[in-house]
Structures are given as structure tokens and as C-alpha cells.
């Protein structure tokens, strides 16, 4: 099959509230970098938590890498999916960087002798190889998130979920994470990445964008299809990326500028 994630008629509600997700169906293709966009409270994080079985699925079906999410398969699925959450301080478990990366490996019963090599490999991937003995208190938010990503990748997942992984970081930390993601996309073309974000700079470089509103995926498309569609963005309480906004205002002022995806590209066309 070609999908990493399939939702079929999923309905989910918290306690007695009205359903947050209602009869939701969508697919995400394998090997893509997909971005899930939606305003606060649209249900983005709920989708992430359903995929890894942190929330109970009561209505509908979810398939992750062709495996149906159920009691029987949950461990297999969790072995294939890694998630990085928002708060760098809430997911650092080890007393040092190497301990933290080792934590997931120990859970998977990886042989002790093989660990140092794996730890070094993934710490190097996120440029943290010189901090293996460092304690979390000595690390910045961006560094902790990079360690979280290294720990996730060390488990060799088919799917990496980033749930607003950059939203609590300073500008430098954000940049570091986004650089790691672009390296991953280049080096691991088979791994699927699902990023939940409010940052349009992260969305505009995606393969595919899914727009979530009121518990429904209202549109799936390329950044070009989604981010330049002013009506769609407005209807879903989203703001266009900076370059799209500049271009629109230029058009309104009689300046003819083609579609651009970055500030550099825009200036090039001026």
C-alpha cells in the first residue's frame, strides 16, 4: 500500500463534549513531508495522539503503515512511529544526552554493545555529538529538541511526527530544528514526516499540506494549492505566509509578480 497513515470514519470526543473529530477520513502517502495546519483547538494534536494510541479510538479505523490500530498491533505500530512534542523539558528523560538517546533503545532491547555506535550516529545527525555527556540543564531548548529527535530517529521509525516541536524555541532553536528536518528529508527519503505547526515558513516547504477545521480535513494539496488560496485560508482562520502576503499586496497595487515561495525568490522577481 502507498499510505503511511489512513483514517477511516474516525469520530473522537473528549468526555461529554461534542465530537472534536467527526467521521474523519484522510490518507497520507508514504515518504512525504506533510504538514497539518489548523487553528488552536482544531484537533491537530488529537490526531497525533490517536495515531500513536495515546488516546483511545472508539469510532472508526486508523491504519499506520498498513497495520490497523488495535490492541493487537499497538506495540508494532509504536515501534514504527516516533513523536516529538512541543515542550523540550517534558520529554528529556535521561540524565545525559547519551542516556536520553539510549532510553528508547533500551526499551527496544537493543544489545548494549551496539548502543554507543547508534547513539553517536544519531547524535551526529543532529549535531549533538560533542554533548554526549552533557546534562539537560546545560542545554538550550533547541539542543534538547534535537536530542529528542535523535532519540526518535535512533528507533528507525517509518513515521516521525513533530507536534509543534519548534513552537517553544527561540529563533536559533527553530532554525536548528528546521535544518535537521531538511537533512532528514534528503537522507531518508523513505521516512514519512508529519509536522503539526503554525509556522508558515515550515508549511511552505512541505510536499503536502492538510487543512484541518472543525474536525474535518477541508483540503489536501501542495503548498501552491493551499497557501495562495486566500479564501481557503480565511475560511479556516489561517494567515498566509509572509511572501504570499507581500505578493498579494503588490498585485493590489498594480505590480505584477509571479508566485514566489521565499523572500529570496520574491526579490529576484522584483
Amino acid at each position: 500500500m502507498q499510505n503511511i497513515i489512513e483514517f477511516k470514519n474516525v469520530t473522537f470526543k473528549y468526555d461529554d463534549n461534542s465530537p472534536l473529530l467527526e467521521n474523519l477520513s484522510f490518507n497520507i502517502k508514504k515518504g512525504t513531508y506533510s504538514v497539518l495546519l489548523g487553528h488552536n483547538g482544531s484537533g491537530k494534536s488529537t490526531i497525533a495522539k490517536l495515531i500513536i494510541g495515546l488516546l483511545p479510538l472508539k469510532n472508526g479505523q486508523i491504519f499506520v503503515n498498513d497495520l490497523q490500530l488495535n490492541e493487537e498491533n499497538i506495540d508494532k505500530i509504536r515501534n514504527n512511529v516516533a513523536i516529538v512534542f512541543q515542550n523540550p523539558d517534558n520529554q528529556f528523560i535521561g540524565s545525559t544526552v547519551e542516556d536520553d538517546i539510549a532510553f528508547g533503545l533500551e526499551n527496544r532491547c537493543v544489545e548494549q554493545e551496539k548502543m554507543p555506535e547508534i547513539i553517536t550516529k544519531f547524535a551526529t545527525l543532529v549535531s549533538m555529538e560533542n554533548f554526549l555527556k552533557a546534562e539537560p540543564s546545560a542545554l538550550s531548548g533547541g539542543q534538547k529538541q534535537r536530542v529528542a529527535i535523535a532519540g526518535a530517529l535512533a528507533l528507525n521509525p517509518d513515521l516521525l511526527i513533530l507536534d509543534e516541536a519548534t513552537s517553544m524555541l527561540d529563533p536559533k532553536g527553530k532554525k536548528e530544528i528546521n535544518e535537521v528536518i531538511s537533512i532528514l528529508r534528503k537522507n531518508n527519503p523513505n521516512m514519512s514526516i508529519l509536522s503539526i505547526t503554525h509556522h508558515m515558513d515550515e508549511a511552505i516547504i512541505a510536499d503536502e499540506i492538510l487543512v484541518l477545521n472543525k474536525g474535518q480535513i477541508v483540503k489536501v494539496g501542495t503548498p501552491k494549492d493551499i497557501l495562495f488560496d486566500q479564501k481557503l485560508l480565511e475560511e479556516n482562520n489561517l494567515l498566509p505566509p509572509f511572501v504570499v502576503n507581500v505578493r498579494k499586496q503588490m498585485l493590489d497595487n498594480g505590480l505584477d509578480i509571479p508566485l514566489c515561495f521565499s523572500i529570496e525568490e520574491l526579490v529576484d522577481k522584483l
Binding site: H39, N40, Q86, E164, M168, H198, N237, L238, L239
Partner: peptide
């Protein structure tokens, strides 16, 4: 505004 969507942040 950390963690808020762009409209809520504005």
C-alpha cells in the same frame, strides 16, 4: 503568544 496560532497571537 508562544503556542498560539497566528490569528490568536495577533
Amino acid at each position: 503568544t508562544a503556542g498560539l496560532d497566528p490569528i490568536a497571537a495577533n
